[in-house]
Design a protein around this nucleic acid. Structure first.
Lengths: 249, 249
DNA sequence: CAAATTTGTCCATTGATATAGACAACCATA
DNA sequence: TATGGTTGTCTATATCAATGGACAAATTTG
Protein backbone atom coordinates (compact mmCIF):
# COMPACT_ATOMS: atom_id res chain seq x y z
CA UNK A 1 0.00 0.00 0.00
CA UNK A 2 2.96 2.21 0.44
CA UNK A 3 2.99 1.89 -3.29
CA UNK A 4 -0.61 2.80 -3.78
CA UNK A 5 -0.61 5.73 -1.39
CA UNK A 6 2.52 7.80 -1.35
CA UNK A 7 3.01 9.47 -4.68
CA UNK A 8 6.70 10.20 -4.98
CA UNK A 9 5.92 13.79 -5.73
CA UNK A 10 6.86 16.88 -3.88
CA UNK A 11 5.24 20.25 -3.14
CA UNK A 12 6.84 23.48 -4.19
CA UNK A 13 6.42 26.91 -2.52
CA UNK A 14 4.81 25.09 0.37
CA UNK A 15 6.67 26.58 3.28
CA UNK A 16 8.43 23.25 3.66
CA UNK A 17 11.63 23.07 1.68
CA UNK A 18 12.08 20.32 -0.86
CA UNK A 19 15.11 18.88 0.90
CA UNK A 20 13.10 18.56 4.12
CA UNK A 21 10.26 16.85 2.27
CA UNK A 22 12.64 14.45 0.61
CA UNK A 23 14.36 13.69 3.90
CA UNK A 24 10.90 12.83 5.24
CA UNK A 25 10.24 10.54 2.29
CA UNK A 26 13.55 8.76 2.67
CA UNK A 27 12.89 8.20 6.36
CA UNK A 28 9.46 6.88 5.53
CA UNK A 29 10.84 4.58 2.87
CA UNK A 30 13.37 3.21 5.34
CA UNK A 31 10.66 2.67 7.93
CA UNK A 32 8.50 0.91 5.35
CA UNK A 33 11.40 -1.31 4.39
CA UNK A 34 11.60 0.00 0.82
CA UNK A 35 15.32 0.55 1.21
CA UNK A 36 16.87 -2.65 2.55
CA UNK A 37 18.32 -2.40 6.02
CA UNK A 38 22.01 -1.48 6.27
CA UNK A 39 22.36 -1.58 2.49
CA UNK A 40 23.07 1.21 0.06
CA UNK A 41 20.46 3.74 -0.92
CA UNK A 42 19.87 4.26 -4.63
CA UNK A 43 22.52 6.66 -5.97
CA UNK A 44 21.86 10.37 -5.77
CA UNK A 45 21.04 10.75 -9.45
CA UNK A 46 18.44 7.97 -9.20
CA UNK A 47 16.83 9.56 -6.16
CA UNK A 48 16.83 12.93 -7.89
CA UNK A 49 15.00 11.41 -10.83
CA UNK A 50 12.61 9.49 -8.61
CA UNK A 51 11.53 12.61 -6.73
CA UNK A 52 11.79 14.95 -9.70
CA UNK A 53 14.34 17.32 -8.22
CA UNK A 54 17.94 18.30 -8.74
CA UNK A 55 20.73 16.13 -7.44
CA UNK A 56 21.90 18.94 -5.15
CA UNK A 57 18.50 18.98 -3.47
CA UNK A 58 18.72 15.28 -2.77
CA UNK A 59 22.19 15.90 -1.37
CA UNK A 60 20.77 18.46 1.05
CA UNK A 61 18.23 15.92 2.26
CA UNK A 62 20.88 13.23 2.66
CA UNK A 63 23.27 15.51 4.52
CA UNK A 64 20.50 16.34 6.99
CA UNK A 65 19.95 12.63 7.59
CA UNK A 66 23.68 12.08 7.92
CA UNK A 67 23.85 14.80 10.59
CA UNK A 68 20.96 13.02 12.26
CA UNK A 69 22.76 9.69 12.30
CA UNK A 70 20.29 7.88 10.03
CA UNK A 71 22.57 7.60 7.00
CA UNK A 72 26.28 7.33 6.36
CA UNK A 73 27.73 8.48 3.04
CA UNK A 74 31.01 7.08 1.66
CA UNK A 75 32.63 8.69 -1.31
CA UNK A 76 32.86 6.32 -4.27
CA UNK A 77 30.82 3.59 -2.55
CA UNK A 78 27.38 4.85 -1.76
CA UNK A 79 25.10 6.01 1.04
CA UNK A 80 24.10 3.51 3.67
CA UNK A 81 21.22 3.09 6.07
CA UNK A 82 22.37 3.01 9.67
CA UNK A 83 19.27 3.20 11.82
CA UNK A 84 16.62 0.61 12.18
CA UNK A 85 12.91 0.87 11.54
CA UNK A 86 10.61 2.89 13.72
CA UNK A 87 9.84 1.60 17.14
CA UNK A 88 6.24 0.64 17.62
CA UNK A 89 5.16 2.06 20.95
CA UNK A 90 2.09 0.40 22.41
CA UNK A 91 -0.70 2.41 23.99
CA UNK A 92 -3.61 0.81 25.76
CA UNK A 93 -5.26 0.34 29.10
CA UNK A 94 -1.95 -0.76 30.65
CA UNK A 95 0.52 1.48 28.91
CA UNK A 96 3.98 1.26 30.45
CA UNK A 97 7.29 2.23 29.01
CA UNK A 98 9.69 -0.65 29.25
CA UNK A 99 7.37 -3.59 28.83
CA UNK A 100 6.08 -2.36 25.51
CA UNK A 101 9.35 -2.18 23.69
CA UNK A 102 10.50 -5.68 24.50
CA UNK A 103 12.05 -7.35 21.53
CA UNK A 104 12.32 -4.14 19.52
CA UNK A 105 15.22 -2.52 21.31
CA UNK A 106 18.11 -4.07 23.13
CA UNK A 107 18.41 -1.43 25.78
CA UNK A 108 15.73 0.85 27.15
CA UNK A 109 15.32 3.07 30.17
CA UNK A 110 13.81 6.28 31.49
CA UNK A 111 15.87 9.23 32.68
CA UNK A 112 14.46 11.73 35.17
CA UNK A 113 15.45 15.16 33.91
CA UNK A 114 13.53 17.63 36.05
CA UNK A 115 11.37 17.46 39.13
CA UNK A 116 9.54 20.39 40.65
CA UNK A 117 6.68 21.23 42.96
CA UNK A 118 4.32 23.81 41.52
CA UNK A 119 0.71 24.98 41.69
CA UNK A 120 -1.65 23.02 39.47
CA UNK A 121 -2.76 24.68 36.27
CA UNK A 122 -6.43 24.54 35.46
CA UNK A 123 -5.91 21.65 33.11
CA UNK A 124 -3.83 19.60 35.52
CA UNK A 125 -6.17 20.30 38.40
CA UNK A 126 -9.24 19.27 36.42
CA UNK A 127 -7.62 16.03 35.32
CA UNK A 128 -6.42 15.06 38.78
CA UNK A 129 -9.58 16.12 40.57
CA UNK A 130 -7.82 18.90 42.50
CA UNK A 131 -8.55 22.57 42.87
CA UNK A 132 -6.64 24.97 40.67
CA UNK A 133 -3.44 26.08 42.37
CA UNK A 134 -3.18 22.99 44.55
CA UNK A 135 0.37 21.74 44.97
CA UNK A 136 1.47 19.17 42.40
CA UNK A 137 4.74 17.47 41.57
CA UNK A 138 5.95 17.67 37.99
CA UNK A 139 8.35 15.01 36.70
CA UNK A 140 9.99 15.43 33.33
CA UNK A 141 11.44 12.30 31.83
CA UNK A 142 13.07 11.09 28.67
CA UNK A 143 12.61 7.57 27.37
CA UNK A 144 15.56 6.10 25.51
CA UNK A 145 15.95 2.93 23.51
CA UNK A 146 19.32 1.85 22.17
CA UNK A 147 20.83 5.23 23.03
CA UNK A 148 18.24 7.18 21.07
CA UNK A 149 15.57 9.36 22.64
CA UNK A 150 12.12 8.02 21.82
CA UNK A 151 9.92 10.03 24.15
CA UNK A 152 9.85 13.12 26.33
CA UNK A 153 7.14 13.38 28.94
CA UNK A 154 5.95 15.69 31.67
CA UNK A 155 3.84 14.06 34.38
CA UNK A 156 1.94 15.64 37.25
CA UNK A 157 1.01 14.02 40.58
CA UNK A 158 -0.86 15.25 43.64
CA UNK A 159 1.94 16.55 45.87
CA UNK A 160 0.03 15.64 49.01
CA UNK A 161 -0.51 12.03 48.18
CA UNK A 162 2.76 11.40 46.34
CA UNK A 163 5.27 13.47 48.29
CA UNK A 164 8.72 12.11 47.48
CA UNK A 165 7.80 10.47 44.22
CA UNK A 166 10.57 12.45 42.57
CA UNK A 167 13.14 10.70 44.75
CA UNK A 168 11.50 7.34 44.09
CA UNK A 169 11.62 8.02 40.37
CA UNK A 170 15.26 8.98 40.53
CA UNK A 171 16.04 5.82 42.47
CA UNK A 172 13.99 3.32 40.48
CA UNK A 173 13.93 4.84 37.02
CA UNK A 174 10.35 3.67 36.67
CA UNK A 175 7.00 5.34 37.13
CA UNK A 176 5.36 2.04 37.84
CA UNK A 177 7.88 1.14 40.56
CA UNK A 178 7.61 4.61 42.06
CA UNK A 179 3.84 4.41 42.27
CA UNK A 180 4.17 1.00 43.90
CA UNK A 181 5.97 2.67 46.80
CA UNK A 182 2.79 4.63 47.41
CA UNK A 183 0.65 1.56 47.43
CA UNK A 184 -0.43 1.76 43.81
CA UNK A 185 -0.25 -1.86 42.70
CA UNK A 186 -2.06 -1.34 39.44
CA UNK A 187 -3.23 1.56 37.34
CA UNK A 188 -5.09 2.03 34.10
CA UNK A 189 -5.08 4.46 31.24
CA UNK A 190 -8.30 6.44 31.50
CA UNK A 191 -7.97 8.69 28.49
CA UNK A 192 -5.49 9.54 25.77
CA UNK A 193 -5.76 12.39 23.30
CA UNK A 194 -3.45 12.36 20.37
CA UNK A 195 -2.23 15.07 18.02
CA UNK A 196 0.75 15.98 15.87
CA UNK A 197 2.67 19.15 15.11
CA UNK A 198 6.01 20.45 14.00
CA UNK A 199 8.73 20.14 16.59
CA UNK A 200 9.42 23.37 18.44
CA UNK A 201 12.72 24.49 19.91
CA UNK A 202 12.19 22.49 23.10
CA UNK A 203 11.38 19.32 21.17
CA UNK A 204 14.48 19.68 19.05
CA UNK A 205 16.70 19.82 22.10
CA UNK A 206 14.83 17.24 24.15
CA UNK A 207 14.54 14.61 21.46
CA UNK A 208 17.69 15.34 19.47
CA UNK A 209 15.78 16.17 16.30
CA UNK A 210 16.56 18.16 13.22
CA UNK A 211 14.49 21.30 12.69
CA UNK A 212 11.34 20.63 10.70
CA UNK A 213 10.73 17.25 12.28
CA UNK A 214 7.24 16.17 13.35
CA UNK A 215 6.28 15.09 16.86
CA UNK A 216 3.33 13.02 18.01
CA UNK A 217 1.80 14.40 21.19
CA UNK A 218 -0.29 12.44 23.67
CA UNK A 219 -2.13 13.88 26.65
CA UNK A 220 -3.21 11.16 29.06
CA UNK A 221 -4.68 10.47 32.47
CA UNK A 222 -3.94 7.37 34.52
CA UNK A 223 -6.32 6.16 37.21
CA UNK A 224 -6.40 3.48 39.86
CA UNK A 225 -8.64 0.48 39.21
CA UNK A 226 -11.29 2.09 41.40
CA UNK A 227 -11.29 5.26 39.38
CA UNK A 228 -9.10 7.74 41.27
CA UNK A 229 -6.99 9.87 38.92
CA UNK A 230 -3.32 9.69 39.93
CA UNK A 231 -1.27 10.94 37.00
CA UNK A 232 -1.69 13.50 34.26
CA UNK A 233 0.92 13.53 31.52
CA UNK A 234 1.86 15.06 28.22
CA UNK A 235 4.29 13.06 26.08
CA UNK A 236 6.04 13.85 22.85
CA UNK A 237 7.35 11.23 20.41
CA UNK A 238 9.51 11.85 17.32
CA UNK A 239 7.28 10.70 14.45
CA UNK A 240 10.28 9.66 12.41
CA UNK A 241 11.43 7.18 15.03
CA UNK A 242 8.24 6.04 16.72
CA UNK A 243 4.79 4.89 15.72
CA UNK A 244 2.03 4.31 18.25
CA UNK A 245 0.26 0.98 18.30
CA UNK A 246 -3.14 1.09 19.96
CA UNK A 247 -3.34 -2.22 21.71
CA UNK A 248 -6.41 -3.94 23.00
CA UNK A 249 -6.50 -4.26 26.74
CA UNK B 1 0.40 23.45 30.26
CA UNK B 2 0.32 25.02 26.87
CA UNK B 3 2.12 27.75 28.72
CA UNK B 4 4.76 25.54 30.24
CA UNK B 5 5.45 23.59 27.09
CA UNK B 6 5.42 25.55 23.87
CA UNK B 7 8.15 28.12 23.82
CA UNK B 8 7.03 30.80 21.43
CA UNK B 9 10.28 30.58 19.56
CA UNK B 10 10.88 29.62 16.01
CA UNK B 11 13.55 27.68 14.10
CA UNK B 12 15.53 29.27 11.32
CA UNK B 13 17.14 27.49 8.35
CA UNK B 14 15.15 24.45 9.36
CA UNK B 15 13.65 23.49 6.04
CA UNK B 16 10.34 24.75 7.33
CA UNK B 17 9.71 28.39 6.55
CA UNK B 18 8.98 30.78 9.38
CA UNK B 19 5.54 31.68 8.08
CA UNK B 20 4.60 28.00 8.02
CA UNK B 21 5.85 27.52 11.58
CA UNK B 22 3.93 30.54 12.78
CA UNK B 23 0.77 29.40 11.01
CA UNK B 24 1.19 26.13 12.92
CA UNK B 25 1.57 27.98 16.19
CA UNK B 26 -1.49 30.11 15.60
CA UNK B 27 -3.55 27.04 14.77
CA UNK B 28 -2.29 25.36 17.90
CA UNK B 29 -3.07 28.41 20.00
CA UNK B 30 -6.60 28.49 18.62
CA UNK B 31 -7.06 24.80 19.33
CA UNK B 32 -5.76 25.31 22.88
CA UNK B 33 -8.18 28.18 23.40
CA UNK B 34 -5.43 30.77 23.84
CA UNK B 35 -7.13 33.01 21.30
CA UNK B 36 -10.79 33.34 22.27
CA UNK B 37 -13.24 31.85 19.82
CA UNK B 38 -14.60 34.18 17.14
CA UNK B 39 -12.73 37.13 18.65
CA UNK B 40 -9.88 39.16 17.26
CA UNK B 41 -6.34 37.84 17.18
CA UNK B 42 -3.66 40.07 18.68
CA UNK B 43 -2.64 42.68 16.08
CA UNK B 44 0.08 41.78 13.63
CA UNK B 45 2.75 43.84 15.35
CA UNK B 46 2.05 42.10 18.65
CA UNK B 47 2.26 38.66 17.03
CA UNK B 48 5.48 39.66 15.30
CA UNK B 49 6.97 40.63 18.63
CA UNK B 50 5.65 37.54 20.35
CA UNK B 51 7.25 35.20 17.84
CA UNK B 52 10.33 37.32 17.25
CA UNK B 53 9.86 37.84 13.51
CA UNK B 54 8.99 40.62 11.14
CA UNK B 55 5.43 41.77 10.73
CA UNK B 56 5.47 40.71 7.07
CA UNK B 57 6.31 37.17 8.09
CA UNK B 58 3.30 37.09 10.39
CA UNK B 59 1.25 38.41 7.51
CA UNK B 60 2.35 35.50 5.34
CA UNK B 61 1.24 33.06 8.03
CA UNK B 62 -2.10 34.82 8.43
CA UNK B 63 -2.77 34.96 4.71
CA UNK B 64 -2.19 31.21 4.50
CA UNK B 65 -4.75 30.67 7.27
CA UNK B 66 -7.16 33.06 5.56
CA UNK B 67 -6.87 31.06 2.33
CA UNK B 68 -7.54 28.00 4.44
CA UNK B 69 -10.70 29.45 5.95
CA UNK B 70 -9.45 29.53 9.53
CA UNK B 71 -9.12 33.29 9.84
CA UNK B 72 -10.81 36.33 8.37
CA UNK B 73 -8.94 39.63 8.17
CA UNK B 74 -10.76 42.96 8.05
CA UNK B 75 -8.86 46.08 7.27
CA UNK B 76 -8.97 48.59 10.10
CA UNK B 77 -10.70 46.20 12.50
CA UNK B 78 -8.58 43.16 13.07
CA UNK B 79 -8.19 39.48 12.22
CA UNK B 80 -10.81 37.08 13.47
CA UNK B 81 -10.98 33.40 14.27
CA UNK B 82 -13.59 31.65 12.16
CA UNK B 83 -13.15 27.95 12.67
CA UNK B 84 -13.86 26.10 15.80
CA UNK B 85 -11.51 23.98 17.80
CA UNK B 86 -10.20 20.72 16.50
CA UNK B 87 -12.61 17.86 16.30
CA UNK B 88 -11.83 15.09 18.71
CA UNK B 89 -12.15 11.86 16.79
CA UNK B 90 -12.64 8.81 18.99
CA UNK B 91 -10.78 5.59 18.33
CA UNK B 92 -11.50 2.45 20.27
CA UNK B 93 -12.92 -1.03 20.05
CA UNK B 94 -16.06 0.27 18.38
CA UNK B 95 -14.73 3.04 16.22
CA UNK B 96 -17.35 4.38 13.84
CA UNK B 97 -17.48 7.63 12.01
CA UNK B 98 -20.73 9.39 12.69
CA UNK B 99 -21.43 8.30 16.24
CA UNK B 100 -18.17 9.65 17.53
CA UNK B 101 -18.59 13.20 16.39
CA UNK B 102 -22.01 13.73 17.90
CA UNK B 103 -22.25 17.07 19.59
CA UNK B 104 -19.07 18.40 18.04
CA UNK B 105 -20.29 19.02 14.53
CA UNK B 106 -23.73 19.87 13.29
CA UNK B 107 -23.53 17.95 10.06
CA UNK B 108 -21.40 14.92 9.27
CA UNK B 109 -21.34 12.31 6.55
CA UNK B 110 -19.13 10.05 4.48
CA UNK B 111 -18.74 10.37 0.73
CA UNK B 112 -17.70 7.40 -1.41
CA UNK B 113 -15.12 8.69 -3.86
CA UNK B 114 -13.69 5.61 -5.54
CA UNK B 115 -14.46 1.94 -5.60
CA UNK B 116 -12.42 -0.69 -7.38
CA UNK B 117 -11.76 -4.39 -7.48
CA UNK B 118 -8.10 -5.25 -7.43
CA UNK B 119 -5.66 -7.98 -6.43
CA UNK B 120 -4.68 -7.89 -2.77
CA UNK B 121 -1.25 -6.53 -1.95
CA UNK B 122 0.83 -8.50 0.49
CA UNK B 123 -0.09 -6.20 3.33
CA UNK B 124 -3.83 -6.27 2.61
CA UNK B 125 -3.82 -10.04 2.11
CA UNK B 126 -1.99 -10.68 5.37
CA UNK B 127 -4.36 -8.47 7.31
CA UNK B 128 -7.49 -10.00 5.85
CA UNK B 129 -6.28 -13.58 5.99
CA UNK B 130 -6.25 -13.96 2.20
CA UNK B 131 -3.58 -15.07 -0.21
CA UNK B 132 -1.64 -12.38 -2.02
CA UNK B 133 -3.31 -11.45 -5.26
CA UNK B 134 -6.76 -12.57 -4.15
CA UNK B 135 -9.53 -10.29 -5.34
CA UNK B 136 -10.42 -7.46 -2.94
CA UNK B 137 -12.67 -4.42 -3.12
CA UNK B 138 -11.14 -1.06 -2.34
CA UNK B 139 -13.39 1.77 -1.15
CA UNK B 140 -12.02 5.28 -0.85
CA UNK B 141 -14.04 7.62 1.28
CA UNK B 142 -13.91 11.11 2.67
CA UNK B 143 -15.41 12.03 6.00
CA UNK B 144 -16.82 15.53 6.31
CA UNK B 145 -18.09 17.49 9.25
CA UNK B 146 -19.72 20.88 8.80
CA UNK B 147 -18.55 21.03 5.18
CA UNK B 148 -14.91 20.47 6.05
CA UNK B 149 -13.01 17.28 5.21
CA UNK B 150 -11.83 15.59 8.39
CA UNK B 151 -10.68 12.22 7.11
CA UNK B 152 -9.71 10.36 3.97
CA UNK B 153 -9.66 6.59 4.10
CA UNK B 154 -9.01 3.61 1.87
CA UNK B 155 -10.61 0.35 2.98
CA UNK B 156 -10.22 -3.14 1.61
CA UNK B 157 -12.71 -6.00 1.82
CA UNK B 158 -12.67 -9.59 0.59
CA UNK B 159 -14.33 -9.35 -2.83
CA UNK B 160 -15.78 -12.83 -2.51
CA UNK B 161 -17.56 -12.30 0.74
CA UNK B 162 -18.53 -8.66 0.24
CA UNK B 163 -19.38 -8.46 -3.46
CA UNK B 164 -21.50 -5.35 -3.99
CA UNK B 165 -20.40 -3.54 -0.87
CA UNK B 166 -19.44 -0.61 -3.08
CA UNK B 167 -23.06 -0.21 -4.16
CA UNK B 168 -24.23 -0.59 -0.58
CA UNK B 169 -21.77 2.07 0.52
CA UNK B 170 -22.91 4.43 -2.22
CA UNK B 171 -26.52 3.88 -1.19
CA UNK B 172 -26.19 4.07 2.56
CA UNK B 173 -23.21 6.34 3.03
CA UNK B 174 -22.13 4.21 5.95
CA UNK B 175 -19.63 1.39 6.35
CA UNK B 176 -21.54 0.04 9.31
CA UNK B 177 -24.82 -0.04 7.40
CA UNK B 178 -23.14 -1.62 4.39
CA UNK B 179 -21.61 -4.37 6.46
CA UNK B 180 -25.00 -4.98 8.04
CA UNK B 181 -26.31 -5.95 4.60
CA UNK B 182 -23.81 -8.77 4.64
CA UNK B 183 -24.91 -10.01 8.01
CA UNK B 184 -22.27 -8.19 10.02
CA UNK B 185 -24.24 -6.97 13.00
CA UNK B 186 -21.21 -5.97 15.02
CA UNK B 187 -17.51 -5.56 14.49
CA UNK B 188 -14.51 -4.58 16.56
CA UNK B 189 -11.26 -2.75 16.06
CA UNK B 190 -8.55 -5.36 16.26
CA UNK B 191 -5.47 -3.19 15.80
CA UNK B 192 -4.55 0.39 15.05
CA UNK B 193 -1.11 1.72 14.23
CA UNK B 194 -0.62 5.43 14.29
CA UNK B 195 1.96 7.71 12.71
CA UNK B 196 2.34 11.24 11.39
CA UNK B 197 4.00 12.84 8.40
CA UNK B 198 3.92 15.85 6.14
CA UNK B 199 0.97 15.90 3.77
CA UNK B 200 1.86 14.78 0.26
CA UNK B 201 0.25 15.92 -2.97
CA UNK B 202 -2.62 13.45 -2.62
CA UNK B 203 -3.35 14.54 0.94
CA UNK B 204 -3.42 18.19 -0.05
CA UNK B 205 -6.04 17.55 -2.70
CA UNK B 206 -8.08 15.01 -0.73
CA UNK B 207 -8.27 16.96 2.51
CA UNK B 208 -8.19 20.50 1.16
CA UNK B 209 -4.97 21.36 2.99
CA UNK B 210 -2.30 23.93 2.48
CA UNK B 211 1.15 22.63 1.55
CA UNK B 212 3.28 21.88 4.59
CA UNK B 213 0.40 20.61 6.68
CA UNK B 214 0.73 17.53 8.86
CA UNK B 215 -1.46 14.43 8.62
CA UNK B 216 -2.11 11.75 11.19
CA UNK B 217 -2.16 8.29 9.63
CA UNK B 218 -3.88 5.24 11.08
CA UNK B 219 -3.66 1.71 9.73
CA UNK B 220 -6.31 -0.51 11.20
CA UNK B 221 -7.99 -3.91 10.99
CA UNK B 222 -11.60 -4.56 11.92
CA UNK B 223 -12.81 -8.01 12.89
CA UNK B 224 -16.07 -9.72 13.71
CA UNK B 225 -16.72 -10.57 17.38
CA UNK B 226 -15.57 -14.12 16.67
CA UNK B 227 -12.27 -12.95 15.27
CA UNK B 228 -12.63 -12.99 11.49
CA UNK B 229 -10.88 -10.03 9.84
CA UNK B 230 -13.29 -8.19 7.56
CA UNK B 231 -11.80 -4.78 6.84
CA UNK B 232 -8.32 -3.36 6.42
CA UNK B 233 -8.01 0.40 6.21
CA UNK B 234 -5.59 3.28 6.07
CA UNK B 235 -6.95 6.67 7.11
CA UNK B 236 -5.48 10.13 7.03
CA UNK B 237 -6.57 12.99 9.27
CA UNK B 238 -5.51 16.64 9.01
CA UNK B 239 -3.66 17.24 12.29
CA UNK B 240 -4.71 20.87 12.32
CA UNK B 241 -8.39 20.01 12.34
CA UNK B 242 -8.57 16.69 14.13
CA UNK B 243 -7.18 15.10 17.25
CA UNK B 244 -7.62 11.44 18.05
CA UNK B 245 -9.10 10.45 21.35
CA UNK B 246 -8.31 6.91 22.40
CA UNK B 247 -11.43 5.68 24.10
CA UNK B 248 -11.70 2.57 26.21
CA UNK B 249 -10.46 -0.20 24.02
C1' DC C 1 45.66 -0.45 -15.30
C1' DA C 2 41.49 1.48 -17.35
C1' DA C 3 36.71 2.31 -17.18
C1' DA C 4 32.55 2.93 -14.89
C1' DT C 5 30.15 4.31 -10.83
C1' DT C 6 29.37 7.13 -7.03
C1' DT C 7 30.05 10.86 -3.66
C1' DG C 8 32.26 15.59 -2.95
C1' DT C 9 33.15 20.43 -4.31
C1' DC C 10 32.94 24.62 -6.92
C1' DC C 11 30.72 28.34 -9.75
C1' DA C 12 26.79 30.75 -11.50
C1' DT C 13 21.86 31.83 -11.81
C1' DT C 14 17.10 32.06 -10.45
C1' DG C 15 13.23 32.31 -7.39
C1' DA C 16 11.33 32.05 -2.67
C1' DT C 17 11.85 33.65 2.10
C1' DA C 18 12.63 37.19 5.54
C1' DT C 19 13.69 41.84 7.09
C1' DA C 20 13.14 46.94 7.07
C1' DG C 21 10.76 51.14 6.45
C1' DA C 22 7.16 54.14 4.78
C1' DC C 23 2.66 55.18 3.90
C1' DA C 24 -2.24 54.38 2.31
C1' DA C 25 -6.88 52.65 3.52
C1' DC C 26 -10.14 51.62 6.75
C1' DC C 27 -12.43 51.41 11.27
C1' DA C 28 -13.79 52.69 16.00
C1' DT C 29 -14.40 56.11 19.21
C1' DA C 30 -13.48 60.10 22.03
C1' DT D 1 -14.19 65.40 13.04
C1' DA D 2 -9.88 64.31 14.62
C1' DT D 3 -7.05 60.76 16.57
C1' DG D 4 -5.20 56.28 17.29
C1' DG D 5 -5.14 51.62 16.10
C1' DT D 6 -5.27 48.18 12.62
C1' DT D 7 -4.79 45.89 8.04
C1' DG D 8 -3.11 46.50 3.10
C1' DT D 9 0.43 47.79 -0.30
C1' DC D 10 4.75 49.22 -2.06
C1' DT D 11 9.94 49.46 -2.52
C1' DA D 12 14.41 47.77 -1.41
C1' DT D 13 17.80 44.51 0.31
C1' DA D 14 19.88 40.29 2.10
C1' DT D 15 19.79 35.42 2.73
C1' DC D 16 18.12 30.78 1.82
C1' DA D 17 16.55 27.22 -1.43
C1' DA D 18 16.83 25.04 -5.84
C1' DT D 19 18.66 24.32 -10.44
C1' DG D 20 22.37 23.41 -13.89
C1' DG D 21 26.79 22.23 -15.25
C1' DA D 22 31.52 20.81 -14.72
C1' DC D 23 34.99 18.31 -12.68
C1' DA D 24 37.65 16.19 -8.69
C1' DA D 25 38.18 12.21 -5.50
C1' DA D 26 37.34 7.69 -4.05
C1' DT D 27 35.79 2.98 -4.88
C1' DT D 28 34.54 -1.03 -7.50
C1' DT D 29 34.76 -3.82 -11.54
C1' DG D 30 36.48 -5.66 -15.86
Amino acid sequence: MAATMSADSVERRSGVSLWRQIADKILHAIAMGDFPESAALPPEVALAERYGVNRHTVRSAISALVREGVLKAEQGRGTFVLSRKRLSYPIGARTRFSTGLQGQAVERHIVLLVSAVEPASERVAASLGLTKGASVIRLETRGEADERPVSRAASWFDAGRFAGIDAAMAATGSITASLARFGIEDYLRQSTVLSARHADAADLADLDLQPGAIVLVTVAVNITPDGQPIQFSESRFPAERVELRLSAL
